[in-house]
Amino acid sequence: MRLWTIQPLEVLEIIKQEGEFVCNPNYSDSDFKRAYHWLVKQMDNRGIEHPYGLELPIWAWYKTDWENKKPDLEQEDFSDSRKNLVCIELEINDKDVLLTDFYAWHHVLNDSFLDSSHDEKEWDLQHEWYDALAPEKRQIVKEESWNDIFNITPTQNEWIARGREVQAVFWKITKDMIKGYESVHPCVKSAKA
């Protein structure tokens, strides 16, 4: 599976020296640790091999604008850190990757109910039903609704664009996975593996 991950430039040096790169949870947004750990549990439940001692996965793009292609580095918001980032192109075994719909994932991040509506009327009905549930039942239903983030089947109408932007999580980057890289800043040279 072809993926693209945006990482600090020094990640390439770490891989060169150590042969691999893994996520350091100290650099992850602490506000989202609950959501990240929920996703790790989903990786474990789906039989994705979880290397001992690793807490959080690495993130990458599988699809952008409906296609398996590199993100448009000019369109992305990399703010002031832009000069230190590279887009690394990877080839990873499908069995080592979990794919999720980027927009649906925000329901997990925001700890909110992911409805299955296709229009405003359905949305109103589903949220009215959900809001009427007892708090303990609402929590169960909310977490069950999150399973829909794994539905990446392309679907588009006026209400949703499922499968347009698909993200990937996996445990590590090794030298042999790298097919090339491109700087998000023109002062750093790009390369092919």
Rank of each mutant, 00 (worst) to 15 (best):
Y27K: 07
Y27T: 10
S28M: 10
S28A: 15
D29H: 07
D31R: 08
F32Y: 13
K33W: 07
R34C: 08
R34I: 14
A35R: 04
Y36V: 13
H37A: 03
H37L: 14
H37N: 14
H37V: 01
H37C: 06
W38A: 00
W38I: 01
W38H: 09
W38E: 02
W38V: 00
L39K: 06
K41Y: 11
Q42M: 05
Q42N: 00
M43L: 04
D44A: 11
N45S: 09
R46N: 15
G47V: 09
G47C: 04
I48M: 10
I48W: 01
E49K: 12
H50K: 04
H50Q: 05
P51S: 09
P51F: 09
Y52P: 13
Y52S: 15
Y52E: 11
Y52N: 13
L54I: 02
L54T: 06
L54W: 08
L56K: 02
I58M: 10
I58T: 03
W59P: 14
W59Q: 13
W59F: 13
A60P: 02
W61H: 07
Y62V: 02
Y62G: 01
K63V: 00
T64A: 09
D65N: 15
D65Y: 02
W66F: 04
W66E: 04
W66I: 03
E67L: 12
E67M: 14
N68S: 08
N68M: 10
N68E: 13
N68L: 03
K69I: 10
K70H: 13
P71D: 07
D72M: 03
D72S: 07
D72E: 08
L73Y: 07
E74W: 10
E74R: 12
E76V: 12
E76M: 09
D77F: 15
F78A: 07
F78D: 02
F78I: 09
F78H: 13
S79E: 09
S79A: 11
S79R: 12
S79I: 10
D80N: 15
D80I: 04
R82D: 06
R82S: 06
K83T: 12
N84Y: 15
L85N: 03
V86P: 05
V86M: 02
V86S: 05
C87F: 11
I88L: 02
I88H: 06
I88R: 08
E89Y: 01
E91N: 12
E91S: 15
E91W: 14
I92V: 15
I92S: 02
N93F: 10
N93R: 13
K95R: 13
K95G: 10
D96M: 14
V97K: 08
V97N: 12
V97M: 03
L99T: 06
L99K: 06
L99A: 03
T100V: 13
T100K: 09
F102K: 04
F102Y: 15
F102M: 07
Y103A: 13
Y103N: 15
Y103E: 15
Y103K: 12
W105V: 06
W105G: 04
W105F: 09
W105D: 01
H107S: 13
L109G: 07
